[in-house]
């Protein structure tokens, strides 16, 4: 789901002054596809990249309509004749639009 872009740090230049030595220890970095910030752990990058997204949605399991807020979804479900008793309806909500970055 999250495009992780490993990048060699060697020869990447002096970005953060006095901590260059520490940076040189890291052999692989993971670069955010939105802001190009660097992380040394892929899970940290994933957590960071979630902050860039603005489209986490809650999707109705009956009609597929998406909502930004769960309470709006709950209210919407009442329009369907059969009350919903399934899962929480969370959707990954990451629209294909984000692939453009």
């Amino acid at each position: 789901m999250f495009a992780i872009m490993p990048m060699e740090t060697e020869g990447h230049g002096r970005e953060f002054g006095r901590r260059q030595k520490m940076r040189a220890k890291c052999t692989v970095e993971f670069v955010c596809k939105y802001c190009q910030r660097r992380f040394t752990k892929p899970y940290n990058l994933m957590i960071h990249e979630r902050s860039h997204k603005d489209d986490v949605t809650f999707t109705c399991e009956v009609c597929g309509k998406s909502f930004k807020r769960q309470d709006n979804l709950k209210q919407h479900r009442s329009i369907h004749s059969v009350p919903y008793k399934g899962s929480n309806g969370y959707s990954n909500g990451y629209s294909s639009g984000y692939s453009r970055y």
Binding site: E15, M22, R38, F39, S51
Partner: peptide, 13 residues
């Protein structure tokens, strides 16, 4: 902090 700095090993100046 929560979105970025806490997750980085090397903080920008």
């Amino acid at each position: 902090y929560g979105s970025t700095l806490a997750l980085q090993d090397v903080l920008p100046d």
